[in-house]
Amino acid sequence: MALKDLLAERPLIQAPMAGGASTPALVAAVAGAGGTGFLAAGYRTAQDVADQVRAVREGGTSAFGVNVFVPSPAVAAPAELGDLRTELAAESRRYGTELGEPRHDDDAWRDKIDLLCDLAVPLVTFTFGCPDAAVLERLRRAGSATMITVTTVAEARVAVERGTDGVCVQGLEAGGHRGCYDPRTGGDRPLPDLLPDVVEAVGVPVVATGGLMTGADVAAVLDAGAHAAQLGTAFLRCPESGAQPAHKAALADPDFTETAVTWAFTGRPARGLVNRFVREHPGERYAYPEVHHMTRPLRAAAAAEGDPGGMALWAGQGFRAAEERPAVEIVARLREEAAARGRRI
C-alpha cells in the first residue's frame, strides 16, 4: 500500500519507542483499534527485530512499521570520554556497578537493512539521519514504504532528494531522542511553527509528532497540513507498553513537574523528566553511542532498584496527560476528541 493511502486510512500512529516501550502487544492493540503501531529496532539485534515482527504478524496485525537508527559518525574524543568516566564514578559507586565500555558501533545497521528487505514490512522509518538513496530504493523494491524523521526544513529536503516516501516532522516538544541528523545543528522549533514550513517545502506525505497527547492536538496538526499524527508518550502508561514500572509511575508522580532536553544518558539530545541524574550531569557532550554504552549499566541498575532518579525517563512535554489505560481505550478517546474538533481519525 502506498504511504499516502496508509496514512489516509490510519492517520493515528503509535510512535516507535526504543529501549523496550514498543512491544508487539502495543503494536497489535493500536493496529486493532484502527491506528498504525510501530516496533523500534534501536538497541535490538536483527534477530530480536525478526522475532518481534513475527510475533506481530502471527497475531494477525498488518498495519505496522519498524523504525531504525541511522548510524552516527564516530566523533567522541578519548579525553572527553575519560573526563566523563571520572564524572560518573560516583554513579558507579551509588549503584554498585561498573560503567560500560564506551564503544562506537552502528547498531547492526547492515543486518537490519538486510532483514527488513527480506521481511517487507509495510513501513520502515529512520531516525538520526537519512540513508542514501540506494537503501531507500532497495526497501521500496522489497515492498516497504519509507519515512525519515526530520527536525528542520533542510533535513526534510535532503530526505526528499534521496527518495523517501514521506517525512515525520518532529517538534521540540517530543519525548525521547531528537531525530536530527546532526545534534549540533539540528532543529529546535516547536511543532506548530515547524510543521507548516515543512508541508510547504516538500511534496510528500508529512506526519507530525511532538507533544501530541489529545484528539484536539491530533486535529490541529491535521488541520495544519499533516497527513497523520504520531504519539509516543500518550501510550507509555498503557499495560501493553514495555516501559519500566518506575518510568510509568514517574509520569504520574507529582514530584516530577517538568521535562528537559539532556545529553547525559546517551551523548545525543533527548527529552525526559527532570530527575536527579539530569540535574547532576548537565552539559552537551556529543558522543553517541559511546555515552549510551557507558551509562547503560547505571540505568539498568537504577531500574532494577526502582529508582527513577537514575533512569532515563523519556517523556514529551505533555506527559501529565498520559493515562494508565489500555491502548484501545486511548485510541478511542483520541478519536472522540478529534471528532469533537471536526476530524475523523
Rank of each mutant, 00 (worst) to 15 (best):
L313P: 05
P73V: 03
D217K: 02
N67M: 09
P102M: 09
M1E: 14
L313T: 02
V27I: 08
A29W: 05
V221C: 10
E155N: 13
D223A: 15
P73E: 02
L273Y: 00
L172A: 15
E329Q: 15
A260S: 14
A76G: 08
P78T: 03
V198N: 09
V198M: 11
R296L: 15
G203T: 05
R333E: 13
E323W: 01
V291P: 10
S22Q: 10
T86N: 05
V167I: 04
R276I: 01
A63K: 04
D217Q: 01
A249V: 01
L116T: 02
D132F: 09
A55R: 07
P269M: 01
P131G: 10
G211Q: 12
V221T: 14
E323F: 01
L136N: 03
E87R: 13
E280G: 00
V198W: 01
V207W: 02
A8V: 00
A40M: 07
M17G: 09
A229Y: 07
A50I: 05
L6W: 03
A2M: 13
E9A: 15
R110L: 14
T259W: 03
N67V: 04
T233E: 07
G35I: 15
A33E: 00
V199P: 08
S72A: 14
S62V: 13
L119C: 07
E240R: 08
V27M: 06
K112D: 10
T45Q: 08
R279S: 02
F235S: 04
H292T: 06
R178N: 12
R93V: 04
E329M: 12
G34N: 06
T262E: 00
Y286Q: 10
H177D: 01
D48V: 12
L236M: 13
V75W: 12
A300W: 09
A79P: 00
P102K: 05
L99K: 12
A28E: 14
L251E: 02
Y95C: 06
T149L: 01
P269S: 01
F64V: 07
H104V: 03
Q52R: 14
R93P: 04
A46E: 00
G37T: 06
F235E: 08
A108V: 10
V66Y: 03
V153W: 13
V158D: 15
A201Q: 12
T266H: 02
V218N: 11
H104T: 05
T185D: 11
R44P: 04
A322N: 00
D105E: 09
D105V: 12
G19R: 11
F69N: 11
L231E: 00
V278E: 06
G309I: 02
P73W: 03
E101H: 15
T45F: 13
V202T: 02
G211W: 15
H281S: 06
G163S: 07
A90W: 13
A219M: 03
E323N: 00
D255K: 15
L273E: 02
R276Y: 00
F265C: 10
V291T: 14
E98N: 03
P326Y: 07
T262S: 14
T257M: 03
Q14L: 07
L39Q: 03
R325F: 00
L298T: 10
A50S: 14
R54I: 11
E324Q: 15
G225W: 03
V150G: 00
